[in-house]
């Protein structure tokens, strides 16, 4: 039988050990609590040009009947993109002197232009130069790439084309994301959205290649805004149609360009072989993303009904599937 002193000693040891264990657990919990970030990427925004962005403003401009969507046939992207904007009233309708224009291309992948997975550099050149013709104060080109951003902008040729045309290329960083909630949305709820580079911008132009997509069937002007999502955005693949339609509600650009010069018909969104591409020689400019994508379906040998997100976006008021009712302006360029 243990002596009373030994029992007291054992109890003391038990208490001491218990206290140490409790302190260790408390320390672990404290560290975990300190590291825990319930909000995800920081909601703080780095100020750019002394203005703080509180989210994505409405960049759209008033519509003009008969100048909502243009469709130009041709092989030379610089010529067709320029013509497409001319048919909608010219760049001066969209960009005013002193404007700061944000251009959002698809710079998602570190792949060369030949594959058609990213916005073609020639379209970047055309649009950026047009903005400066309209006496824009500044043009910013940016995207939240899927692969390493520096590699994406370099290998896609977008960075070089943008810089050569006089634009500022902005790489993503954590502080450029702000939690956004779409009123009435079920998916975009306090989700980090890439807004920083667009702080202070007056106009927003989206430029997208026309592609098949393994998940969403097609990737066009509305899907292009997927690049603005931060965090683990691949989670939204589970409701790809829902997220695309919500993005069309969240983002109200001034203009979108849909490049169907070489359409990726299969193996999208990354492709991999020039055999995946078909020369459809068409450039679309539009103030209505839904209409642009609805027309784009035809180049993919699809019908609008094949893309559920179109109907969702139309129902939400983002645009019109019946692009013909918008009286598209058409032109064809002679074979170069």
């Amino acid at each position: 039988m243990a002596e009373p002193n030994q029992l007291n000693s054992s109890r003391r040891q038990l208490l001491v050990r218990g206290a140490k264990a409790a302190a260790s657990i408390a320390a672990a919990v404290g560290i975990a609590r300190w590291l825990y970030d319930p909000k995800g990427p920081s909601g703080k925004i780095e100020t750019i040009q002394n203005s703080i962005l509180k989210g994505l403003p409405d960049f759209s401009i008033p519509r003009k009947d008969g100048q909502i969507i243009s469709i130009v046939n041709g092989q030379d992207r610089i010529k067709t993109a320029t013509q497409a904007i001319e048919l909608l009233g010219g760049i001066e309708r969209f960009v005013k002197p002193g404007d700061i224009v944000a251009v959002k291309p698809n710079a998602g992948f570190a792949t060369p232009p030949i594959l058609g997975a990213t916005t073609h550099p020639d379209v970047i050149t055309a649009i950026v130069k047009l903005c400066y013709v309209a006496k824009a104060k500044k043009v910013i080109v940016s995207d939240n790439s899927i692969n390493n951003p520096a590699s994406c902008f370099t290998i896609s040729g977008i960075g070089k084309a943008a810089s050569a045309a006089g634009a500022e290329v902005v790489m993503p960083k954590d502080s450029y994301f702000i939690g956004q909630t779409l009123a009435g949305g079920s998916l975009i709820k306090d989700w980090p959205v890439y807004c920083g580079p667009f702080a202070g911008a007056n106009k927003l132009i989206g430029i997208a290649p026309l592609k098949n997509h393994n998940k969403s069937v097609a990737s066009m002007t509305m899907k292009n805004w997927y690049g603005l999502l931060g965090g683990r955005r691949n989670l939204f693949h589970q409701d790809i149609n829902g997220i695309i339609s919500e993005l069309a509600m969240l983002v109200k650009p001034t203009l979108v360009i849909l490049d169907g010069t070489e359409t990726m018909m299969t193996n999208g969104p990354t492709g991999g072989s020039v055999s995946d591409l078909k020369k459809t020689n068409t450039m679309i400019a539009s103030c209505d993303m839904v209409a642009a994508d609805a027309f784009g379906c035809s180049l993919l040998d699809l019908k609008p009904a094949d893309l559920p997100y179109l109907a969702l976006a139309q129902k939400a008021g983002a645009g019109s599937i019946d692009y013909e009712s918008l009286k598209p302006v058409r032109a064809g360029m002679s074979m170069e």
Partner: peptide, 11 residues
């Protein structure tokens, strides 16, 4: 994997 091949990853 999606960070490299995005929408093709599920396949």
């Amino acid at each position: 994997l999606y960070e490299k091949i995005n929408g093709k990853a599920p396949m």
